[in-house]
Amino acid sequence: MLRIAVQSKGRLYDDTMNLLAEADIKVSSSKRTLLVQASNFPLEVLFLRDDDIPQSVASGVADIGIVGENEYQERGENVQILSRLGFSKCRLSLAISKEVNYTGPQWFNGKRIATSYPNVLSKYLRQNGIKADIHVITGSVEISPGIGLADGIFDIVSSGSTLVSNNLREVEIVTHSEALLVGNWNLDDEKHQILNEMLFRFSAVRSAQDKKYVMMNAPKASVPEIIKVLPGIKSPTVIPLAEEGWCSVHTVLDEKRFWSIIAKLKDLGAQGILVTPIEKMIL
């Protein structure tokens, strides 16, 4: 049995539970239970505060954990990064009042900075030769400049709406963050086997994200040009149709490039273009 530490609430909790569900690992979503066992996979889920996850994995209370990179950097625990999961993306940034004339990082010399991430901030200040007074706050860091507690803040930024609502502006991005799967260094062979199966499932889920399965009918004479346009995983599948001179072409497209490619396909004579989402993709 493998034990994974997961954030007990918030966006990272939601994204993690969605990932487990898409990987067909069935876990009760009740937030009142500290430890829950999956019904169809040898996995126990331990729900913790996000800042407790790195230590729980390092100490062996949990075998693995999903945690924000911001907390991984701040805690500095001796755990290994097993995978970057690509969700819950944000950044750790310095922000100040909109009215202030900002002249660059050295503006923070002699200033007071409120933060919940003193270790990450201290490292940044040292690297840039800045001497500032760090005020450690747990909670609503963004209100600090407005009540005169600090000249600026160092905090998580996602959309930036919280900064705007508190009359702040982002002036320096110190580091980017995403969800990490971290692990204890001393997993036995049985737990490694379970972990490898989980990583395989996670990879299949991530590979399918933002991908579309596309099928179309096309004149046989246009197939060579159509194949040049299609950026398939290896090469498109081409199947002759009952109607002489026509083929069915199947491929996988990245959603970001979908519309520009579809327009080219139509110009080459493709018809009956069918687009379907991909749930899993094994590479």
Rank of each mutant, 00 (worst) to 15 (best):
S161K: 14
S161V: 15
S161M: 15
S161L: 13
T162R: 14
L163Q: 02
L163K: 04
S165Y: 10
N166C: 10
N166A: 04
N167D: 05
N167L: 15
L168F: 06
R169A: 08
V171F: 10
E172A: 09
E172H: 09
I173W: 06
I173F: 09
I173V: 14
V174R: 11
V174H: 07
T175C: 13
T175F: 09
T175K: 10
H176F: 15
H176M: 14
H176V: 11
S177V: 13
E178G: 08
E178A: 15
A179Y: 04
A179I: 07
L180E: 03
L181S: 00
L181F: 05
L181Y: 04
V182Q: 00
G183F: 01
G183V: 03
G183R: 03
N184R: 02
W185S: 09
N186Y: 14
L187V: 08
D188E: 05
D188A: 05
D189V: 15
D189H: 14
D189Y: 06
D189P: 07
E190P: 03
E190W: 12
K191L: 09
H192E: 01
Q193E: 05
Q193I: 12
Q193L: 14
I194G: 03
L195W: 01
N196F: 13
N196S: 13
N196C: 03
E197M: 13
L199Y: 04
L199G: 00
L199W: 05
F200W: 07
F200I: 04
F200C: 11
F200L: 07
F202Q: 02
F202A: 01
S203T: 11
A204H: 05
A204L: 04
A204I: 09
V205H: 04
Q209C: 14
Q209T: 11
K211V: 10
K212H: 06
Y213F: 10
Y213P: 01
Y213A: 08
M215S: 07
M215A: 14
M215F: 08
M215Y: 06
M216P: 00
M216Y: 09
N217T: 11
N217E: 08
A218Y: 07
A218S: 11
A218E: 00
K220L: 07
K220V: 02
K220F: 11
A221E: 11
A221H: 09
A221I: 15
A221G: 04
S222Y: 03
S222R: 00
S222N: 08
S222F: 08
V223G: 00
P224N: 05
P224T: 02
P224I: 09
P224E: 03
P224G: 04
E225K: 11
E225G: 13
E225R: 10
E225N: 10
E225F: 15
I226S: 00
I226V: 10
I227Y: 02
K228H: 12
L230I: 13
L230W: 06
L230P: 01
L230F: 03
P231L: 14
G232E: 07
G232V: 07
I233M: 12
I233Y: 12
I233P: 02
K234W: 11
K234C: 06
K234V: 12
S235I: 12
S235H: 12
T237W: 02
I239G: 02
